[in-house]
Design a protein around this nucleic acid. Sequence first.
DNA 1: AGCACGCCGACT
DNA 2: GTCGGCGTGCTC
Length: 813
Amino acid sequence: LIFQEPCYIDVILPLPINQKFTYQITSAHFSIIQVGCRVAVPFGRSKVYAGIVSNFHFIKPEYEVKYILEVLDETPIVSLMHITFWHWIADYYMCSLGEVFNAALPSSFKLANETFVVLHPEWNQNTSSLNDIEYLIVEAIELQKRLKIQEIGQILERKSVLPLIKMMQDRKIIEIESEVFERFKPKMTKMIRLSSELTAQSARSLLSSYKHSPMQASFLDFFLNETSSVVPIHKFCKDYGLKTSYAKGLVKKGIIQVEYEEVHRLKNEEAMTRPLVNLNPEQSKVLKNLRASKKGVNLLHGVTSSGKTEVYVHLMKDCLDLGKQVLLLVPEIALTIQLVNRLKLFFGEQVGVYHSRFGTNERAELWRDVKSNLRFPIIVGARSSVFLPFDNLGLIIVDEEHESSFKQQDPAPRYNARDLAVVMGNYYKAKVLLGSATPSLETSYNVIKKKFGIHSLNTRFGGFSFPEMSLVDISYEHKRKRMNGHFSEQLLNSIQDTFDRGEQVLLFQNRRGYAPQQECQSCGHVSHCKHCDVSLTYHKKSNRLRCHYCGFAIPCSSTCSSCKKQDLLMKGFGTEKIEDELHQIFPDRQIQRMDLDTTRKKGAYEELLNRFEDQEIDVLVGTQMISKGLDFSHVGLVGVLNADQMLNFPNFRAFERAFQMLCQVSGRAGRKKSGSKVLIQTFQADHNVLNWINNHNYKELLASQLNERQSFRYPPYFRLIHVTVRHRNRYTTDEASQFLASSLRSVFEHRILGPEYPSLERLKGFYQKQILIKLERELSYSVAKNRLSIFVNNFKSITLFKGVHIRLDVDPY
DNA sequence: AGCACGCCGACT
DNA sequence: GTCGGCGTGCTC
């Protein structure tokens, strides 16, 4: 490509609009810009965005084109292949490229408004060439060193400042501080070392030539005793109880000198690595088959605790030996510290972790490292790590493949990282391995259709037997008046037995809070959220009624807010209530709760886990948080307080999910010894799904569910697109959804269902209605989506429905 | 998505 | 008379 005037670039901006924006560039820009670099561009009257260069061209558009302000990267931050991948995602999940860009980049690469303007280093200080306005700006910058773009607007009392800035920038009076765009700053540590011309001997004699200073002398002694010649000053002073001021004196005398060194925020303390563990015969066979597999995607179906991780580890090693990168996708990173620690045992410093809870600088650092394939050939990450700029990816493992947290709900792109992993496998020509004890129906279907290969592990690692499972019919127990709160006699006895054996108990109740409803016995009033149509959940600890959807909370009172009588009854129960009841039954036992409310604080989660593993806690009561990937040695009993909540969930995946979740929790029992128990309390003791869990019968579940999905037209036989229509006004929501549904029917016919109220009629102040599109697998998905987006775009141009929000969810969960 | 512009009501 | 509500339209 040869430069010619005028030259344009198309830029992807982080906006939910389906279009790229064209900017003009100079020949100087042209020589340094590459596709995939970030550029700072003016946008609107007063905004500056960092966007990604998507392509070059020479076609002059009919509108007026702005010049870019700055090139922010010397080398591309994403490759051409990534941009292609982004296009694929935007296309498939029906969102804008900007939304994908937003999801993909760590926020420190994005930044828009906090842009600083500084004086240009080449500016000759010749104020006579400036007009009044320019003089005003230069003076202000000289005074404050740098100014935000908005501040310039304030000084000049006008909004449109970008053209002026651009002009002054061209005249080399000012420049945009590009370093600030690079919001990522390497972390530096202050180090001290002996002045270059000195030896230990000469340093001591130099100090003694000054006035006697015993503290500085002992400082120097400690320092000279250090094994390393360059020492981090703060750590050093802390270790020996010295003051940093002693160092200052030594610096002044020219004995030691200060320097700065970049430290990695993402440190890996433990460099010691162990050799890989030997596999049992079953694992070895699976590994051999996986290595030989011709399939791009394979499923590893291994019962809980069968040692899937060991197989992963061997495959990872293979991949590293080829000099390629590995991505291990896990459901929720916070819940996999144990897994990461295990990997570090084998791979040490090579393991990097990527997760949205990490600070933005850490994420940017990891991004850089992955891009240049510097450190961390192994990345363990949550769903967003599919966007990391791998350049030589050889293997993608999706652990707990069936987990719904791989699917992003909001905001767009509503992608499923598991499905993207399969797509990425194609792009990178990398192998994909999906692991699960209870594979999703979609994956099993792909296995049946021979799209994916399958490999099974059927025995528990270490030869421990499966826990003994039993169902407790609590409707019967209730009739017999043998319930103590929410506990059946059997459950309480088993808990006591477990204590007697010196083991621990896990209790599973997939609902947090104390009681999900507080009903007035005299007028029937239930407190509801102001913004959502849900009852408020009572939280005893904070004594508040809280909405679990939007966070709205009101203080709790003992009188009914409607009729003022003191006749309130708690309905239903959550983890907090269970913890409470248990405290009363076993007052001398350590009982702890683990849910969103107790683990919100940073580190609280790890602390709870450690205390449980160290057996400081006898009973852990938790939500699904306790079911995922945790490996406890001393759990003798897993109790499920109410399995019905999950079975009765109004979703076509309810049975599949209940099965997966209950298998997973029960898998927490007896991981390091035999003879443990699982007890499931239910009102539907004869329910098929529960009995299948009881017998570890995945096959039956799969057969029955596939059958049902086919007859009721659900995935994997049909594809779904969820259209949600939202508006503040109920009437408009009704009208708009009705209109959209009937117009869609003209093309999609019987494939359109609804509009219907979702389980939450109003959420965060918005009324919502849902339209479901069911498409046969044989139909072209892309054609259908194209038609759908035409309808949606037409709908958006109807003035009557201005302000109506349309949310598209492709392959919803 | 923001954010500016614009056209109507309740206030000093 | 003005301040400010959020409806509408644009952003290269």
